[in-house]
């Protein structure tokens, strides 16, 4: 009958739509979400330019967390970046965080390099060993107008 045909076509459409929806939310949408328990740590950077909420945190090239928030520390004009990392990851206290770029002008992300300490960082503690973003514009400027001083371009905070 005409009615069942209508129902069939509607059914097919809805199934197709839901399949697309499920694909998007599960496969693509959560591809960047963190599964499992997480905890927060902070890190201080002299310059957090280009980093934003949601930027990835990588360790050995594997996503282990995201940037939760960025704020300015008024006492010494540095940027405090809050990171949300997986609980399964236990970071030695002397680990280092550096801001890096994918490609030449790509997205900024935070790369963690684990240290060698026996003690591990607790939730809410702060990474002090950090490496700020490379200021590509000034780098290019120096390339064009003078010698590139690699040590100066990559300022290190204490």
């Amino acid at each position: 009958m005409k009615n069942t045909k209508l129902e069939l076509s509607v059914g097919i459409f809805v199934m197709l739509g839901i399949a697309a929806l499920a694909y998007l939310t599960i496969q693509v949408g959560t591809g960047s979400m963190l599964n499992g328990d997480t905890y927060l740590i902070e890190s201080r950077f002299a310059n957090a330019g280009g980093l934003h909420t949601g930027s990835t945190v990588l360790l050995a090239g594997v996503t282990v967390g995201r940037v939760e928030g960025i704020r300015m520390e008024p006492s010494d004009y540095s940027a405090i970046v809050t990171l949300r990392v997986l609980s399964t990851l236990r970071l030695p206290t002397d680990s280092m965080a550096s801001i890096k770029t994918t490609g030449l002008i790509g997205d900024k992300f935070i790369s963690l390099s684990p240290g060698a300490d026996d003690t591990y960082m607790a939730a809410g503690s702060r990474i002090t060993m950090t490496e700020s973003a490379v200021d590509i514009e000034s780098l290019i400027g120096k390339m064009a107008f003078g010698s590139v001083d690699k040590d100066k371009a990559q300022q290190e905070t204490k």
């Binding site: 929806l21 998007l24 939310t25 693509v28 960047s32 979400m33």
Partner: peptide
């Protein structure tokens, strides 16, 4: 790149 770029926030906005 597709999978990395799209976040739950974007999906919410979309729908």
């Amino acid at each position: 790149a597709v999978q990395r770029a799209v976040e739950a926030q974007d999906m919410r906005e979309c729908f």
